[in-house]
């Protein structure tokens, strides 16, 4: 049952992205920015965690989860470190994802070449 929720909610979030692509002709960079912002806002109002508890990967795998981590990191770092946390928290919480994306991209760029379409 919990897998059904993961699939349904994850699928619906992606479909929402597709609705935006079709109706507004926006490009992937803008979609990603928009969904990160949605995640930040959801977390800032403490709505993300309740959803995340039953949707699990359904909201954590979409980039919304990345936005939520950024906000969550900033908020918990403010609690433990004060004002400095507002600057350190976001990137600290998402460091693994960003570093992995940058690291693998760099690695593969050394080995592979763009293919003809």
């Amino acid at each position: 049952m919990e897998y059904l929720w993961v699939f349904l909610i994850g699928g619906l979030i992606c479909m929402l992205g597709q609705v935006l692509i079709i109706t507004t002709k926006i490009t992937s960079a803008r979609i990603l920015v928009l969904f990160v912002m949605i995640g930040v806002v959801l977390q800032a109002f403490n709505i993300f965690d309740p959803i995340s508890r039953f949707a699990q990967a359904g909201v954590n795998v979409p980039i919304i989860g990345f936005g939520a981590s950024l906000a969550k990191g900033a908020m918990s770092a403010v609690e433990s470190r004060g004002l400095l946390g507002a600057f350190t928290g976001g990137l600290e919480a998402t460091a693994a994802g960003i570093a992995a994306a940058v690291g693998f991209a760099f690695l593969f760029s050394l080995i592979f070449k763009s293919k003809t379409k």
């Binding site: 994850g10 929402l16 992205g17 935006l20 692509i21 979609i31 990603l32 994802g97 693998f104």
Partner: peptide
């Protein structure tokens, strides 16, 4: 489309 842009894989 959105199915591979919106997940973290799209970011990658």
């Amino acid at each position: 489309g959105g199915g591979t842009i919106v997940p973290i894989t799209g970011f990658s």
